[in-house]
């Protein structure tokens, strides 16, 4: 299986490592640090993950190549990768 590193191009899967869900958002700072809602948001941010069937935006690292982190839109059913790109760019493709 080949994954397209945004810098190095198509490389073998064994050069990469999966680094988690790219869709989680860090909770915004609350007005009151003791806010119970904030605790719940942090609990969700740190521990809870969706397990989607189909297209999913993920973080990958080209750890045996250029060592850069990047985003990949992967289909969790077919393992097809529709798009990869730097962290600050929107991914395209898939049915999202």
């Amino acid at each position: 299986m080949l994954i397209k590193c945004p810098w190095c191009g198509d490389r073998a899967l064994q050069e990469f490592s999966y680094q988690g869900d790219a869709t989680v958002q860090r909770p915004a700072e609350p007005a009151e640090p003791t806010d119970a809602k904030w605790d719940d948001e942090w609990y969700q941010f740190v521990y809870l993950r969706d397990d989607p069937k189909g297209w999913h935006d993920e973080l990958w690292q080209h750890n045996l190549g250029c060592r850069k982190h990047f985003k990949a839109r992967r289909n969790t059913v077919t393992h097809e990768i529709a798009d990869t790109g730097p962290m600050n760019e929107e991914l395209k493709g898939g049915d999202k």
Partner: peptide, 10 residues
């Protein structure tokens, strides 16, 4: 040049 792995060594 390219970085990769040979025998699991970077």
């Amino acid at each position: 040049a390219a970085q990769s792995a040979i025998s699991q060594c970077g």
